[in-house]
Design a protein around this nucleic acid. Structure first.
Lengths: 188, 188
DNA sequence: GTCTATAAAACGATAGAC
DNA sequence: GTCTATCGTTTTATAGAC
């Protein structure tokens, strides 16, 4: 793993834990075991490096979710396995958290991977729901886009609740409440 | 409105829009129309002022939610009116957003009002659900705490989705999906 | 490709006059 | 109670040696 790679990895980690504005180039360098000169040789600056890190994190998030959402099984089963996915819920969502970082919102290059990832996620969930409606597994009057937003929001909001109480069980509870509702909709 | 009051109001606004770490004392002073000397006369510093602002914001959020959750009506009606509450959804939640501010998480005095407010919210929602179960409006096997976390998470997560796309309709969709599920649970 | 030295600006706070 | 001047630190980036 060369210096460039270590810099990106360290930035991914720090962006997740501290956010963009609160992460200094110095922290990144220390964490990556790279000097200042190395960082400014490989990247134009903090923003450029953060874009590379966010793109890599976006890819990871997308791959993880895709595997669960497109696995075999009924729609409710796939939604359930997505919701119950093993998560380090106190850390929150590495993409979703960026929406509360003022610098990210103000910098199109930083915001773009966040927007694209959450957009992709909602679309992928909606596709599962659409299939469930088609298979008469979910009620015909279900709005796939709306329910997809609800499912994605439960995860994003579950992180907020867990972080507020420093307690992962808040996240788990939010997910289980959603799973129960989906199963009632299934039976209903 | 005296200087002390204007400083608190300005801080409430800036904490909501920019967060704690990204808000400088200078911005607060400019926004409040107060000088540096005035700010440090009334408050020990940025943290002290932010605590006062968060406590005032917490009170507002609690009063707004309490009015809707404890209004007359069935449980599902009250949950629906809470979910559909008129919101400036692109701004996000003034309490929830603080959970992604590293400085807030690391400062007990700042975190406390956030924790307390979201804790109160989940408890208040759970009480409505418990009443709905008792009245046989919701299924007997409903877990009030879990479903309360789900409802609160839909709102918190709806904000994240709306901010990611800079589009309030994502929030509205998340809420409407949840309302639809609750009504299915109601009929079911 | 990596190092150290340096710089310009912003940050949060303090001092002391009025 | 509010003002201006100042301080020490941190932030982000650049310069130039090696």
């Amino acid at each position: 793993m060369d210096a460039r790679d270590r810099l990106i990895s360290a930035t991914q980690e720090l962006l997740w834990v501290r956010g963009y504005a609160a992460t200094s180039p110095k922290e990144i360098q220390t964490s990556a075991g790279a000097g200042q000169g190395s960082m400014y040789h490989h990247f134009h600056g903090k923003e450029d490096l953060a874009v590379a890190a966010l793109q890599r994190s976006a890819r990871l998030l997308r791959d993880d979710s895709e595997a669960l959402l497109q696995a075999p099984g009924t729609a409710v089963e796939r939604l359930t396995s997505y919701l119950r996915q093993q998560r380090d819920s106190l850390r929150g969502c590495r993409m979703g958290r960026m929406t509360y970082d003022a610098d990210v919102l103000a910098t199109p290059a930083l915001l773009e991977p966040v927007t694209a990832t959450l957009d992709w996620l909602v679309t992928a969930i909606a596709e599962v729901i659409r299939q469930g409606v088609e298979d008469r597994e979910l009620q015909a009057d279900t709005d796939p886009e709306a329910l997809a937003c609800t499912v994605a929001a439960v995860v994003q909001g579950g992180y907020v609740l867990a972080r507020a109480h420093h307690d992962t069980s808040r996240f788990d509870a939010a997910v289980e409440g959603a799973v129960a509702l989906l199963n009632q909709a299934h039976r209903g």
